[in-house]
Nucleic acid binder design. Structure first.
Lengths: 204, 204
DNA sequence: GCTTCTCTATGACAGTCGTCATACTAGAAC
DNA sequence: GTTCTAGTATGACGACTGTCATAGAGAAGC
């Protein structure tokens, strides 16, 4: 997460995503965001006339695009891509962060937004759904490229992201990456088996 | 979730769990809880001298016990218990609610508490971890009873709860039970396969 | 009858939140 | 030089929040 010299607006969205994934949406104040982004408070209203809701939505949107970009990067860095390898890379992103930086930075911003305001703010709920969709698409496409039948590519991608999100949740609660490593180990064979259809054909 | 004529204290814990899973911890005020529980506001301080943190912790604790009890009930109601059947029953609890009552009631209180205050309130984080543990234990025990090797019973239980929690999250965001049904369908064979060791033995 | 204890009622406190109104700066347009 | 506009600064507003202090009901004990 390298931050170049981006404009104040972009920095605020980025900071909002970071604070949301750490403390949740409701506990993240707009004053906290501008302070974290070292952005002028006077610009808040200028860049986000829609108020906090707009800022949160853009942060969720940013997180969705970021996750999708990470998937592409993982695939580009894998000489022999496999479904289990992709999932392991996705999980390793979290395992590594929790192992090195610790659990302070929090979980997934999209999950936090879903939990906090899927009922209160309809637009935020839609943003979260869009983020999940934007994240699932490249995973499903990658699975299909690895030989997973087209009909199972997206369901398996949904399973991967579900298991990952849930494991992140448990890992945060336990302050232990156990859930993440466990899910990676247990789900891998299933994913790889789907990529190599049974040699004797789909008899049953 | 039938509510008998319980005391005000119990009603408040129950209402807190309901409101937390709907709106999140931060967005749930103590005044909202007493109103929802139709409990006297003056008793708040009396029953929960530890303030909001204590109330939230007890709600999370209640949710963990409730989830564990549900697992036991599912098992008792299954004539021929199987891992996939158990997971399907766990997921069906959410699919049915979302299908009948709608998505308004929200998600899992433990997940909400983890997202909202795993960083702010250490005791709440511990309560969430305990709730996950209390939920995982009966699932792992049931898997072992169904023939899953002891070494894989708990990992698979963690996988089940992870996938379920993640699917709940996605379902809420999408306002569609698709993720829940998908996860049920895709994870079932893997779970059942673990309960019946390969007939030719573990050669590889 | 009096005390004691549990439970309830009510109002106020200090703090924080998101929002908004107003005014100032800097630079480009022409 | 004037005008316009994007961006910044600052302070205040009302509406909350959790917490607390104080006081009252009402049964139990004896």
């Amino acid at each position: 997460m390298a931050e170049k010299e981006r404009g104040p607006r972009e920095r605020m969205v980025f900071s909002a995503a970071q604070l949301i994934r750490r403390d949740g949406v409701a506990a993240t104040g707009m004053r906290d965001v501008v302070a974290h982004a070292r952005a002028p408070r006077g610009s808040l209203r200028h860049y986000f006339p829609g108020g906090k809701e707009q800022l949160v939505n853009e942060a969720v949107d940013w997180a969705g695009r970021y996750a999708a970009a990470r998937v592409a990067r993982f695939l580009a860095g894998m000489p022999q891509p496999s479904p289990s390898g992709l999932f392991a890379a996705m999980a390793a992103q979290w395992i590594d962060e929790y192992g090195s930086v610790g659990f302070e930075a929090g979980g997934c911003p999209v999950a936090a937004a879903t939990v906090d305001c899927s009922r209160a703010a309809e637009s935020t709920r839609e943003a979260a759904a869009a983020a999940f969709a934007r994240w699932t698409a490249p995973v499903a496409r990658a699975l299909a490229d690895m030989g997973v039948p087209a009909a199972r590519a997206e369901p398996l991608a949904t399973l991967m992201i579900s298991a990952l999100e849930g494991a992140i949740l448990i890992a945060r609660a336990e302050r232990d990456v156990r859930a993440l490593t466990t899910v990676t180990r247990e789900l891998g064979p299933l994913l790889d088996a789907a990529a190599t259809p049974p040699p004797d054909g789909p008899t049953t």
